Amino acid sequence: MVWSFSYDPLGSSYPLAEIVEGPVDALELVDPTPDGGVGLRGSVMFSGRPVKPETVPRVIQWKSRQKIGDYVGAWVATVSDRLRALIEDIEPGVHQFEPVEFIAKDGSHLEDRWFWQICNRIDSVNREETDWILFRGVLWAPDRTKLKPAAEKIGLVFDTKAIGAACFWHDKHDSNSNYCSDSTHERLIEAGMTGFRFYHKKQV
């Protein structure tokens, strides 16, 4: 099974936060060479390629009373020390981490964390099984020309061979999703990592 994941705040609403040191919404790829996919100009967070370290925010002010989860996926993706260690254990030497400090409203130190950029960019969807279309050959999108009851909709179906050994990845034709393997999902759950919301995806 494949799982997509997003940020799940540890409270009833999304916390307020602000980048107070370093670039704001200005991540730049080390290698923006086109490859027929998306996320290389906009949606760089979901590109699956390393970014220039100097374009990563360095200090984020946490303006909420909420506890900070192991994974915080708003503004930029950041992870705790223990989640970084687990990611490295699962898939060593693959992903990019840069130091980020979280501070409180009054400017006091809260936590040293890590910016996390997933650095697997693959074409992971099975063309025969999905009922989505590759819009303009670039972006996966629902096929609006074929109206189906909700119960008959399939959505994206992932290809085991195409995924290979990847544990965390971005699909080159999907502009805003994070994916992980079933075994990776199990490791995250077993370790009690917080801040994740998971969605099961079909796989063949």
Rank of each mutant, 00 (worst) to 15 (best):
R84G: 03
D89K: 15
S108L: 07
P50S: 07
K63L: 15
L86C: 05
D106R: 11
V56R: 06
Q117H: 06
D89G: 14
R82F: 03
K105T: 14
G48W: 09
L110I: 12
R49H: 13
E111Q: 13
Q61M: 09
V44G: 12
K105M: 10
W62Q: 07
D123M: 00
K63R: 15
F102L: 13
V56K: 02
D123E: 00
T78N: 08
P57V: 02
S43R: 12
P99C: 01
V51R: 06
E88D: 08
P53Q: 09
Q117D: 05
A85H: 08
V79H: 03
D123A: 01
L86R: 06
R65Q: 13
G73K: 10
W114G: 02
P57H: 02
I118N: 10
T55R: 09
G73N: 09
S47N: 10
Q96I: 05
K52D: 05
V100N: 02
A77H: 08
E88L: 08
F46N: 13
V100G: 00
D106V: 09
F102R: 14
E91M: 04
E88R: 08
H95F: 04
V51S: 05
E91R: 04
A74R: 14
E101H: 15
W62C: 04
D89L: 15
L83V: 07
E91D: 09
